[in-house]
């Protein structure tokens, strides 16, 4: 058994050394201008994340002049830091990080800086000295909330409206920022929040909590703000089985713009959907190229998040990728 374990250890060490060689070889060998990029993704926790990963892989393709080393950290910070370490050791040209957590990045980012490897943050922000990374590209959760709230204020703000909210995971950045944005946009209107509970960003919890809301308030609910599509989709079933018509008796505004969400919108079950764009790959690839070429880049880029009503959703559906 012991021998066997030693064997495994040796084999993996050799494998590591080999990948190390090939990594630096391709950059040093300098086959023209292939840019080697290490991408430390959070994991594969949702459909949004899967779309985000796919978009990165598409943008950092061989045809576009990149060699992408992809790592999914399974949502564990220690895995992710280990991945970034290995990118540095492999001597990549740039590192892209979608950070699992916001803290604990200073040491490894300093190492990257000492090795002259630029770091670009994708999707999530971190708490570290801004000089340690070149740029951040992501979605503005607060603006998404504002856009959703502005629609609600415009459509229902002048009549007395009772709203219930399905919140995202308690304490997560999108849940907090979307709530803040929405709240600021409906301030001073006649929209009153009856209740707000967490649905943990999942369909099942969205459904259960909506059932509770309906039992509690019955027909007095006019508006539902679901902080993501999945919870809104779960709530649809609850509303239907309560004998109400979603989209009419209870208007629904959601955030994300997934294919399923837009389908519900085009069928009239949802009333408005704000996009949270996971297709950040192209934008990140552009920034990476600029950074390596020595061009000056901004510290932060926010993705262009659109918003959809029924007709726009029907038009966008056939080409929707996620």
């Amino acid at each position: 058994m012991k021998k066997f374990l030693v064997g495994i250890a040796v084999a993996s060490a050799v494998a590591l050394a080999l990948t190390g060689c090939s990594g630096s070889g391709s950059t040093a060998g300098g086959s023209a201008k292939v840019i080697t990029v290490g991408f430390a993704q959070t994991g594969s926790e949702s459909g949004w994340r899967a779309a985000n990963t796919q978009s990165m892989k598409d943008a950092f393709s061989t045809e576009n002049g990149f060699k992408l080393i992809f790592n999914a950290a399974d949502n564990k910070p220690e895995n992710q830091i280990a991945a970034v370490h290995s990118f540095i050791n492999q001597g990549v040209d740039a590192i892209v990080i979608a950070a699992v957590v916001t803290t604990g990045w200073d040491d490894v980012l300093k190492e990257a800086k000492d090795a002259n490897i630029p770091v670009i943050l994708e999707d999530r922000t971190i708490d570290a000295d801004p000089s340690l990374y070149a740029s951040w590209i992501g979605d503005d959760f607060k603006q998404e909330g504002v856009t959703a709230g502005a629609w609600a204020a415009k459509t229902l703000g002048t009549t007395a409206t009772s709203m219930v909210v399905l919140e995202g995971t308690t304490g997560s950045a999108p849940a907090i920022d979307r709530a803040t944005g929405f709240g600021s946009a409906i301030k001073g209107t006649q929209i009153k929040t009856l209740d707000s509970q967490t649905g943990n960003f999942t369909r099942a919890d969205g459904k259960t909590v909506m059932e509770g809301f309906l039992q509690k308030y019955g027909k007095s609910i006019n508006l539902l703000f679901a902080q993501n599509d999945d919870m809104g989709l779960g709530a649809l079933d609850a509303i239907k089985s309560a004998g109400l018509t979603p989209g009419k008796d209870i208007q629904i505004v959601a955030i994300d713009g997934t294919k399923d969400g837009l389908t519900a919108l085009s069928q009239g079950d949802f009333n408005y959907v704000v996009e949270c764009n996971p297709l950040l790959g192209e934008q990140v690839a552009t920034v990476v190229k600029d950074v390596i070429a020595g061009k000056k880049v901004d510290k932060a880029y926010t993705a262009k998040d659109g918003a959809f009503d029924k007709d726009q959703a029907t038009a966008a559906l056939p080409t929707r990728k996620y």
Partner: peptide, 14 residues
């Protein structure tokens, strides 16, 4: 039962 409740296979959250 869980997947039938939401008519979706949510591998991360089921």
């Amino acid at each position: 039962l869980y997947s039938s409740n939401i008519m979706a296979a949510d591998a991360n959250n089921a």
